[in-house]
Design a protein around this nucleic acid. Structure first.
Lengths: 138, 138
DNA sequence: TTTACAAATCGTAACCATTACGATATACTA
DNA sequence: TAGTATATCGTAATGGTTACGATTTGTAAA
């Protein structure tokens, strides 16, 4: 998702376009990987000294609700990335840099009648390890 | 895994068998589902008034390290269950009761050469929703 | 362009899950 | 049953997250 896509979503929902929001979206849209709230806070603090945690978390939640960001829980800490958007897929996630690689297979295709009497709300498939460049560097 | 299996693992590694440890293992081995540290704390507090968080968390970590328990991160909080032990598999997890159902399919069987230059350390496949009994109750 | 106001941000405190540690109690070994 | 290493308690600290009154800012209307 591009910066402009995100700006459109925000404005179509009646949210204001602030400098901080633009910077947050820019941070995620130019980095293909998962980042923590702390990562974002530190990035923002460099440009906007004294930025509030409230601002960081409020916008992370807002963007997640608007499907601008997607999130995952790693080691009991939430990580966020820009929403890739196109069709359904999963990710490899690098344990070192948080970088991701799209995986175009989905185990739900093979779930068949295994969960016949269950209600399925969601699912998660993620592969963890080292991406090629972190592998070389280690 | 049964209570006795877990006791053997503990003793083979030279750990002491305390009343609290036995109660913790009993708690997990008689409940087929994921439970939080808080769930366990509240269960233990009923029997052992004044039990320390240190005891709860130290043993959760110990049991996890010894593969007596397995864990997953849900909503940025760790959840634990008894290790099923037999062969590799994944779980459906009920959003209401934490109950699980074994899923005998693994997406890694189909990963092929998708991650050719990557190091794969781990992976996670989980399906979330309502189990039959929570579905009926809702 | 200015005004007006709802919405966004700041500054800070509180909350919750988790970790840590010195003092005390307990399980195991001899 | 005595000695010792280990486990637990009581409690404080940490880290991630949430919350809120006071202030500032973006936007739309005058």
């Amino acid at each position: 998702m591009s910066l402009n896509d995100a700006i459109n979503i925000l404005q179509n929902h009646g949210y204001k376009m602030t400098h901080r929001r633009k910077a947050i979206i820019q941070y995620f849209s130019t980095s293909d990987g998962y980042r923590t709230a702390k990562d974002l806070y530190e990035h923002m603090e460099a440009k906007y000294t004294g930025i509030s945690y409230d601002t960081v978390y409020r916008n992370l939640h807002l963007f997640h609700d608007l499907d601008i960001l997607e999130s995952t829980s790693l080691n009991a800490e939430k990580h966020f990335r820009i929403n890739c958007g196109d069709h359904h897929h999963h990710h490899f996630i690098c344990n070192v840099c948080g970088g991701t690689k799209k995986l175009n297979i989905c185990p739900m295709d093979d779930i068949g009648t295994l969960l016949k009497n269950y209600t399925i709300d969601d699912h998660k498939f993620e592969v963890y390890g080292l991406c090629p460049s972190c592998k070389l560097a280690s």
